[in-house]
Design a binder for these strands. Sequence first.
DNA 1: ATGCTGACTATGT
DNA 2: TACATAGCCAGCA
Length: 118
Amino acid sequence: MPKARGGVDVKTAGSYERIWAVVRRIPAGRVATYGQVARIAGLGGAARLVGYALHALPEKGHGVPWQRVINSQGRISQRGLGGPEEVQRRLLEREGVHFDLRDRVDLARFGWTGRRAQ
DNA sequence: ATGCTGACTATGT
DNA sequence: TACATAGCCAGCA
């Protein structure tokens, strides 16, 4: 199986696999935006697809830290009634990610650089 | 091939 | 800061 930077399996068919592979690289205590993940996964501006891929993630999550992906405003994207937004926030707070009074994360502090944990 | 959809983003007011 | 719009692009029917 051919691999490339970061050990991401490039040959795998669907974009989902690639997206999940990128998300798995996000270290605990850090967050990345949908657009950022899309770009690193080689999907250009398909930020929306990232959300779509995470939504299609099996419950087990395959060990993918889906909670570390938030939108460019530093907020948890809402997906409707009964969504796991609360769980996501709790998981992040447990990793040390701080939410301000407006439920936003300071991307300048907790944003993932795409390289290593700062 | 065509059109619709979505856990988005950048830009303007 | 908040809301509205237009642009995005892979999946799926």
